[in-house]
Each structure stands twice: as C-alpha cells, then as structure tokens.
Design a protein around this nucleic acid. Structure first.
Lengths: 337, 337
DNA sequence: TTACCCTAAGAATACGTTTTCTGAGCACCT
DNA sequence: AGGTGCTCAGAAAACGTATTCTTAGGGTAA
C-alpha cells in the first residue's frame, strides 16, 4: 500500500507487472524488450492502473520540453492569431507543442512572461515585442533561443523575421496618386511600435516620390483610436486616409459613416494588415496584405533551426502588397473657391 | 570544474558562496536565514553567476505548476480571445499563469491537447469544447481538474459555466416582432455546437410565443459561411435574419451589400456575441451581448475553487441580453399582390 | 568441457529542487 | 555546573523518469 489516492507511477506499474521499473520504462517508450510476455504484462498493468507518465518529471529528466512558447501583445487584435496559427503549423511539423501567452500590450508583463515561459519551453517567439531595447538586451543575456517577429534590433543575438512595409506602402501611395489624390492623411500607430516606424518611413519616401503631401495624426492600434483620431485628419483637408492598420481603418470607417461621409466618394480609406474582416466590411477595405501566416511559419522554422544547431541568428524580411477593394476611389472635385 | 557551459545550478551558487545548497534554497525563497552575511554571500553569488532556478525541476519537486491551461477551438474567432482575457484576469489574481492552446476546431486535436496540457498544468479550462461526449467522459477519467465553458454535460464531474441564450434570443425575437416582422430566418451554426442548440431552442420557443414563423438554414460559424448561406434564406421571403453569431452576420451583411439590398430597410439583421467589431460595422449591428469576459472570469474562479477544495462541480449560467443598434428596423411593406 | 562473449533484464544513479532530518553550539534555568 | 531546550545551518532524502551500469545466464567456439 504505497499511495492509495495519488497518481500511479512507474513503480506501481512495475510492482503490478512483477518487473523492474527499467523494464516498464523501456516497454512504454518502445525500447527493445525481448520477452514478449514481459511486454504484455507491462502493457496491461499500465492500462489497468490508468498509468499516465508524469510530464514534468519526464521533461525534467530530459532537460528538454519539446515545447515552444509565443508571446503576443494582444490576442484580441486579429493580426496575432493569424501569425500564431502559422507558427503552430510549423512547430507541430517539428514535433513541438505551442504554448501561447498574451501580455496585454504591457511591456513589463511581456518581460515577466518571457521569464515564466522560458522555464517551460525550449525556445520563444516574440511577436511584435513592445518591451524596451534594454530589456530585450537583458533577455538576450539569459541565453534563451529566441526569435522576434515584426521587430529588428541591432547587435542582439536574436533571429528576426519582419515584413517590408515599404513595398506595400509605396503601392498604396501610388494607387492613391494614380486616382488623383494629392493630400493624404496618416492615422499613426503607437509610438512604441516598430511596425509604425517602418510604415511611416515607407509612407514618407513614397509620398515624396509621387509628389503628394501627407499629414500625420496620432491614433493608436485599435478601432476606437481610429474613431477618435479621424476628425483631426478631416480638418486638414485630406482626400484620402491611410491607417496604421485595419482596426484603425475600421474605426475611421465607422466615424465617417456617422458623419454621413461616403467612402470612397467623400474620402478614400486604406488599411494595413488585411485582417480576415477587411474583405467583409462595407465597403470592402483596400488594404495592404501582410503575410501573417507565413510570418509565423518562418519564425517557427528559424527557431527550430536555432534549436538544433544554435546557428547565429538571421534577419528575414517578407514582402507586403496592396490589395485594391472598394474603399478607395478618385477624390471628389474640390469645392470651387 | 563541473559544467563549463550549462546553466548554473544551486550547487554552483552554494560552492561559490561557501554554503550548503539548503541555505541557497532558503535564501532564494525568502525562508528565514539568520546570518545576514550568509544571505549577502548567497545573493551576490547568485547574481554573479546569473543563476536562474530551473522551473521544470522546481515544478517537479512541488508537484504543482501554478499554471492553468485553456483550450479554445479557434483563436481567429474574436469571441475566444475575449473569454481568454477574462480567464487571464481571474487566474492571475490567484497567482497562476495562463497557457493558451488552439485546437483549430479539430475535436481530435482538442483531445490530444488536453493530454498534453494536463501534464504541464494544474487544471484546464475547455472553451466551447467540440469533442464528443465519449471523449469528454474519457477525459473525466483522467482526474484532471477541469471546467467547461459554453457546454453542459450530464453526469460528468466537470464544472460548467455557460450562457443562457434563451434570454437574449427572446429579446431579439420580441424586438423584431415589435417592429412588425412576421417571417424571420435563422442562419444556424455548426451542428456540433452546443451553443447553437441552445440558441435555436430559444429562438423557436420565443417565435412561438410571439407568433412569428422561422425558417432555418445551415450556415456555420464563419463569415464566409454567412456569406454563402444568406441567399437560401432570401428565397424564403423572410424580412429579418438572425445569425448564429456576429461573424456569420458579418458575412450576411457583406452579401446583402453585394446584392444591393440595404440594411435595415430591405432586411433586418441580428447577430449574436457582440464582438468588438459589431459596433463598428456599417450599419452597426444589433446583436445579443454575451458576457465573454465574465464567462472567462467565472470559469477561472470555478477552477481555482476546484483546485483548493476539490469541490464537486457546479453548473453556472450567465444571462445574455439584446443590444439594439442600426441593423434592425421595420420591415418593408410587402409588395402588393 | 571450459572460457569467453553477448544478451537481456534488474539495480542503481542522475537530473535540480525543496524540505525534513540531524547535529552542533549556545543560552538559560534549576 | 550540568542538563535541557532551542536555534540555525549543513546533510540527506525525495519527487518520477530515463539510462547507464551490473550481473546472471546461455550459447558458441576452441
């Protein structure tokens, strides 16, 4: 009578099957065991007792968890579930499990989560990390295999896979310029966002190229932010609005509708990310496709590579591209005056 | 010279600080250690070596992970991130971490994930589980503390917290009836969905109550499903459409727009769930609020309770309620004939 | 027939922690 | 002054598993 209530261990199985624990372990892990009678006894004893190996003990013994963790800023932003799914597809191919954590856009929580997760995973993917460069450097010191998406850092031993926002931005600006727009507004994302910096830079250089002027106003990353910030841009007499992302564009669209302004006749709107919802909006949103799923896949592949050969981290960039739908059109002729 | 490259352990710290490992452990875990000199030596040695406790070893020793796992059918459905956030809010209060997993709407994967996660967590929350009743019963046999949301099962020792769809459904039907609708259509959810059964039942009883007729057509749980299924309902001459959820409603809205049918003048549309996006649509969607965040919180509270006292599981139900926005209005007068 | 090798399963160990147990030293009380 | 009790830190054990080490036994070859 060892333990009446607690989970059966390998010892219980061994006793029940009249063999040593080594044999139990060998049988249950498919190692060679000659005597088929032993195999059968162990198997049935394990089944009988409802034995389930202790995962933590096993991981402890192996020193490896075959688990990869991913931290996202906000699962409620549909962008991230898509990259997580890409990541999941890749890591399951490499026979890893995926554990997801949400830091709620809080940089400190993000750092804390890296600490927590790293103890239970073999490697970590950081999606669009919000934490400071200093903290990222500190994390680097922990020696955890780590890959970042949507952020590039100099001098840090992390692999990164980002997207080249400039391509899509340029296409968007060219598209608007071709339609006849000369004054476009940008609803900017959070100042802490690396993506926003890239998109903004791409925007400005493309605008210069096309000879259009751009007004910037700070919005954020949510629909509500877009809803709030839109009027400021309206006052600047722009004929088209580029949003930091589709969520912001969605908020802008809602505000425009509320103001009785038709899209695209009164104002053109362009989003960024191509969220699943974008194609279903009224009107369907012209936006920039970013390969979210592929982003996740590449991050996974890179991390797994890092796990096997500890290779020095590479920096990858995926292209973005415009998809024209119905939220953009020629500008309304200026009121005479 | 023990291990030149691998992570420092408590032994390394002990050696460096000239104390026993017991003392190291005591200092690092805030247990009482009298000699302040020892404390200082241990602290500085740990810092010096960059010692970070091995989480897996610690969890192994404790036999407890202070971690709760949650499995959702599909993170890309904005319903679930909201529930997960509520859950996170609750479990962090109880000093637990939350690990999220996505089974991609695959019942087998869901079962597999329960097995995986249960080894690394103290308890599990199953959101809207898709697996068969048999498999759920099998899981019950594993003796894992488990709580289900959005599904009630008889004779299984799980806590459940669901939502009473009937309330919201009744309000929706009454609202439509009051507007003058007599023929309403229902875009049904997946047949495997427990929620759909509840919503459908609520719909039928309310319809009978109000003396309106209802036509049902199978859609699914995605926007695309709503988009595809809508025309079938149109052929049935309904003046209002109730969707299984907001995603389906979104797809229906898109199809209606494409067909040049105005909402709500040509057709009224009602969703379910009140996703964040619902208020931003054109037109803003009349829908049924389900307390997603609270759903998560209650599930967390119930699970934590289960963890401390192993209490016999309770069944909770949260109310739902209609929110009227602009996608519903009086029916267009019937064409004379 | 004996010695050697090989096989196959049992015994023992290690993984890194936390905690119980032990023993030494000191102070206090009788 | 001697014994008793208490405090504090070191020694050792335990958690459950996988694997290396050990040993017994059988078969083969000389």
């Amino acid at each position: 009578m060892t333990s009446p209530r607690s989970r059966p261990t390998v010892f219980d199985v061994a006793r029940s099957a009249q063999v040593s624990i080594a044999t139990v372990s060998r049988v249950l892990n498919g190692r060679a065991v000659a005597d088929q009678a032993l195999v059968a006894r162990v198997r049935s004893a394990a089944r009988e007792l409802g034995y389930r190996p202790n995962t933590v003990a096993r991981d402890f013994r192996h020193g490896v968890t075959r688990t990869i963790g991913v931290i996202v800023p906000d699962l409620a932003n549909p962008f991230f579930p898509d990259v997580v799914k890409g990541l999941a597809d890749d890591v399951t191919e490499g026979d890893h499990r995926l554990l997801i954590a949400d830091c709620g856009e809080d940089p400190d929580e993000e750092l804390r989560l890296v600490g927590e997760l790293s103890g239970r995973c073999d490697g970590i993917v950081l999606c669009s990390p919000r934490m400071s460069a200093e903290n990222l450097a500190a994390v680097a010191g922990w020696g955890i295999p780590l890959v970042c998406t949507n952020r590039e850092l100099d001098g840090l031993p992390f692999g990164t896979v980002g997207v080249d926002s400039a391509i899509g931005m340029a296409q968007a600006v060219e598209h608007l310029a071709a339609l006849g727009h000369r004054d476009i507004g940008y609803l900017a994302g959070p100042t802490t966002s690396w993506s926003d910096r890239g998109r903004r830079a791409g925007l400005h250089s493309a605008a210069e190229q096309c000879g259009v002027s751009v007004s910037v106003t700070l919005a954020g990353s949510t629909s509500d932010a877009g809803y709030q910030a839109l009027p400021d841009l309206l006052r600047r007499n722009v004929t088209a609005v580029l949003a930091f992302n589709d969520l912001v564009a969605l908020g802008a669209l809602a505000r425009l509708r509320e103001l009785g302004l038709d899209v695209p006749t009164a104002l053109s709107v362009v989003g960024f990310d191509d969220l699943p919802v974008a194609a279903f909006l009224g009107p369907p949103l012209t936006t920039v496709i970013v390969p979210k799923h592929e982003l996740g896949r590449r991050a996974g592949a890179m991390l797994r590579q890092l796990l096997v050969d500890g290779a020095i981290a590479r920096q990858e960039r995926l292209p973005s591209s415009l998809v024209v739908r119905e939220s953009t059109g020629p500008p309304r002729p200026r009121p005479a005056g």
